[in-house]
Design a protein around this nucleic acid. Structure first.
Lengths: 360, 360
DNA sequence: ATGAAAGCGCTAACAG
DNA sequence: CTGTTAGCGCTTTCAT
């Protein structure tokens, strides 16, 4: 069943190739190729025949060969994200994959954590597959990695953030699909400042700016200031209206629980708590319940993300909903457009929605 | 910078190829190739030189060409899973990816839901990339899909289940890495039967046997019978000691919440509830709390999965912990061994652990 | 330790 | 509408 003309070839391939199909159909490889791909340049009968024979012979096209032999037939895309342990990137990735596979693009994925070196290594490795595009998670990254992304010659879309962290916006930056984290934080800040006097606290995680929580905190703080919320006194060296604590841990229920305990122990006067994400906020709620604190009577709580858990608790969590699946789909669409040469906006804002729960 | 010998070639490639590096280093392509890959057949100086030049020229190997040109150099693996919206497959995938990328294998992933047709389409598509192995999620699948998997000529590992659903174990089946869901359900059944008289209820989802919950329910039921738990009367047509309800929904907090409401409304006498997974169990807990039911005083609750949420609630959830990351890593190791021709056991049991929380 | 030749399976380009 | 000719960039095989 191997290529017919070189029966003496010592090398591989037990599988049926395009040449085999073409020969059996009595046409040339090119005609078979065209018919199989449904491009143009064949008669209806020819196509039907080729398809039938391919089917009969159990022909499985070799996309490796196709991608290699052609500049345009490479429908591999790279997707690089920090983690899949939580809903956030899982749902984004699901959205990406669904959209890509619907147009026969194949994602190759890397789960690189929050380590710049690992990320860079993966990106380099991914590039050696000559993908036609790249999706990377928006986060605060090293100069080396930013430079790397900016110097790419293939289309690239950054997801999650719109504003690019500390980076100033540059022409050569990748496209972005997501929302403005500063604004999301500010919106929550305004909402809370209108309802509570404070004092305000924030619980996040240290070491990395996980998922751009720092941006949101900045927006949050800025909004409180605009609303005239005062700093809580000398303790706070930055003279910020927000007392913060950053756990040396990944964002999780646990971190929220222990972070809240720690923060409240040091600052028993805090009345409003804002969290890096919903999981942490729920952890905080649990701690408060155990301490007999009424929510929001004694302590008001706000999270971020709009994760499932927040919506089913007896006291629904006040939070900012992010549209993860939509971000994935929208990002895939944007990248596909760019790959096909269609015009695409540099920034696509999928927005967020402030969810007024019962915790704040 | 393109291949030097055919400056008149009208076709592509702005990038540096192996030939370019070789020429500049004054060696043949083969020597350069060997040096770059670190196989054998070069002097230390040659290698150093080639590496230096490659670095200087910004050479990025073309893995597409390598994979295509060689039978052995293809380090693509396919990973096919139902969803990434929840912790389950996200963490498994993270484990898989980490292990594969550590040995320079590149996963291509498909998120196919619980639809057999979609799964089959993806598998066919993935095969056209000529991956050297395949990872698929264990679930109850159609005969067509099972047949497809059994007829694969590349190594394949099924994750999550050990027992293969209704399937009888066959020689040609893929390897399996996971645990026995029937046994996990039975263990929980025994645990609960020793502590409660019942009546027992189960809340799952309909339509698909999501993540093999049916297997666990079967084990659960069987254990109750062995422990002498009686069926609750005529209502139950199967004469089973477990009264069940299956939501037409995906497993979620919501489904657990509403399923519990529905089941308790129809069967107010139920005293012990077992769930498809922890998320649903937590949903059930919330419903009980809202109805003023004491847990486990009025209703005992047990979940499955060992998800984060269960461990941080004020009342810790009684559940069966599954080791998702470990399943991923172990499965990757098994597949890699098989690919390299090393002997591997057909079944690898990573076990589970019954977590005695405070809800049952 | 090194090199020359051949070819993996496919598609772009240019004929007919 | 169909066929022919050339490779894509790498690794294999077999010399040297």
């Amino acid at each position: 069943m191997t290529s017919s003309k070189k029966p003496n070839s010592t090398r591989r391939s037990t599988s049926v190739s395009l040449a085999d199909v073409a020969e059996r159909a009595g046409v040339s490889k090119m005609t078979a190729s065209r018919a199989l791909r449904g491009t143009t340049g064949y008669s209806a009968e020819t196509r039907a025949l080729v398809l039938k024979i391919a089917e009969e012979m159990g022909y499985v096209p070799n996309r490796l060969a196709a991608a290699f032999g052609s500049d345009t037939a490479n429908n591999l895309v790279g997707i690089c994200i920090p983690t899949l342990s939580r809903e956030l990137y899982g749902q984004i990735l699901e959205g990406l994959e669904n959209r890509f596979s619907s147009v026969n693009y194949q994602p190759i994925v890397g789960v690189v954590g929050y380590d710049d070196e690992v990320e860079l290594a993966w990106l380099n490795s991914a590039l050696s597959w000559r993908p036609s595009g790249l999706v990377v998670a928006g986060r605060e990254r090293s100069l080396a990695n930013r430079t790397f992304l900016q110097s790419l010659t293939i289309p690239c879309v950054e997801i999650w953030n719109l504003c690019g962290g500390k980076d100033t916006m540059e022409k050569s930056d990748p496209m972005r699909v997501g929302f403005n984290h500063f604004d999301a934080g500010a919106e929550m800040g305004r909402y809370l400042a209108n309802r509570y006097q404070g004092p305000f606290g924030y619980i996040g995680v240290r070491d990395e700016d996980v998922n751009l929580g720092a941006e949101r905190l900045a927006g949050f703080t800025s909004a409180l200031l605009e609303c005239g919320i005062p700093a809580p006194g000398r303790k706070n060296k930055n003279n910020s209206p927000v007392t913060t604590t950053f756990l040396k841990d990944k964002a999780s229920f646990y971190a929220g629980y222990y972070g809240t305990e720690q923060l409240l122990t040091a600052n028993p006067d805090l009345r409003v708590l804002y969290y890096l994400d919903d999981n942490m906020a729920v952890g905080g709620m649990m701690l408060c319940q155990q301490k007999g604190l009424k929510i929001p009577g004694d302590v008001a709580i706000a999270g971020f993300g709009g994760m499932d858990i927040g919506a089913i608790l007896p006291t629904r969590l006040t939070t900012t909903a992010a549209f993860r699946l939509r971000i994935g789909k929208t990002a895939a669409d944007a990248l596909l457009k760019k790959i096909s040469g269609s015009p695409v906006g540099v920034l696509t804002d999928v927005g967020t929605e402030l969810v007024r729960g019962e915790t704040a």
